[in-house]
Amino acid sequence: MKIDQNFIDKDRRGFIEKVVKGSIAGSLMLMIPMNSKLFAKVAGDDSKLVSLIDPKDKAKHYAFMVDVTGCIGCGSCCVADRKENSVPQGQYRTWVERYVIDIYNTVYVDSPEGGEKGYSKPRTDIKEKIKDAFFVPKLCNMCEEPSCVQVCPVAATFKSPDGFVLVDNSHCVACGYCVQACPYGVRFINNDTKTADKCTWCYHRISKGKLPACVNACPTGARKFGDLNDPKSEVAKIYNSKTVLKVLKKSLGNEPALFYVGAHEEVI
């Protein structure tokens, strides 16, 4: 301490110079978005759990699959998601749509309250005979070429090296450009945080080796998550089988990592 004081006394001008330089450098650091914390290994109470996701591990190829033929429209996934991610009421990270097709091929779609309360009552406004009906869960498509990342003016929305499209809500200005750019309507400006928000496939859970909350809650296994490069995973088995897979709005070229099994042409 004495030495320090002597040093300061000896070179007061140099000391002040260093303080000023340090402050400027420090302030500049504040302007750089620190996304890296999202990739940090999980510490604290869960210190035994080590991240299963290695951002630099290109060998992983995560995918989400929704089996439309398996969804019963119970809404458990939506309830689990709202609780897990504290999603404000009236806003949706995931929702379930009900499709009804009559014999004249007229398609009726609805999703009251995002399907969160389940579909216990049938639609009464359809006069014609119905030939088909099914439920379609919707969530982030985790595009290979995400429009939201492209348009974000401040790079608050970014794609992690392991393919997850995420939002740094400490940096987002909430201009809403990503909301406009997302072809799937999965983004919204969170009423609580006033920043862009969206489904992350529960990145915080996956990084602890857990399944996304909605996958965990689905009673029929209609929602599936896994690594396409792991031959033992269910998604890889489906992906490598003859099963017909569909991605939404394929012509836009966003290359989603969300695949639908048994989805009709009418699903948009």
């Binding site: 302007m31 790079a155 940096h171 200005v173 201009c175």
Partner: peptide, 28 residues
């Protein structure tokens, strides 16, 4: 009008400090 529209107007200068030129974002 832009600043009034932003959810976080206090971060408006992020557009200048951390512009997304990789996208690239036209807005930046």
């Amino acid at each position: 009008p832009l600043i009034n529209h932003l959810g976080h107007p206090e971060r408006a200068l992020n557009m200048l400090f951390t512009p997304n030129f990789v996208g690239p974002s036209m807005m930046s």
